[in-house]
């Protein structure tokens, strides 16, 4: 029963990822796509958590945190790129 629920959740997350990829492909604008990637990241975090539960192991919990951190960094990089084209500036003009 519990196994069942967890597995269903896992499948749901996978479906969510799949739909988000669809958004990446469809676009239409770049922020849409990045948004979708962000969603994928979040879903991956969830998936990892669920898999950890399923396998009953603590080994992957670091990955959750890392993924959280890095999808954030990634999103920032993308949004800066979309906004300015330059990801890292030499000197902020202010």
């Amino acid at each position: 029963m519990i196994q069942m629920m967890i597995t269903i959740a896992l499948v749901l997350f996978a479906i969510a990822i799949g739909m988000a990829v669809l958004r990446i492909i469809l676009g239409p604008s770049m922020p849409d796509r990045v948004l979708a990637l962000d969603v994928i990241g979040v879903n991956l975090i969830a998936s990892i958590a669920v898999i950890s539960v399923l396998m009953n192991t603590k080994a992957f919990l670091e990955a959750i945190l890392i993924l959280g951190i890095l999808s954030f960094i990634g999103t920032i990089a993308y949004s800066k790129f979309i906004e300015r084209g330059v990801v890292v500036e030499r000197k902020r003009d202010r």
Binding site: I69, I73, I76, V88, R92
Partner: peptide, 17 residues
């Protein structure tokens, strides 16, 4: 991971800072 922290710093602030 450490370097990704630095990357984040560079992203948010600028190089000189």
């Amino acid at each position: 991971v450490l370097s990704s922290a630095l990357v984040l710093l560079f992203l948010v602030h600028d190089i000189e800072t």
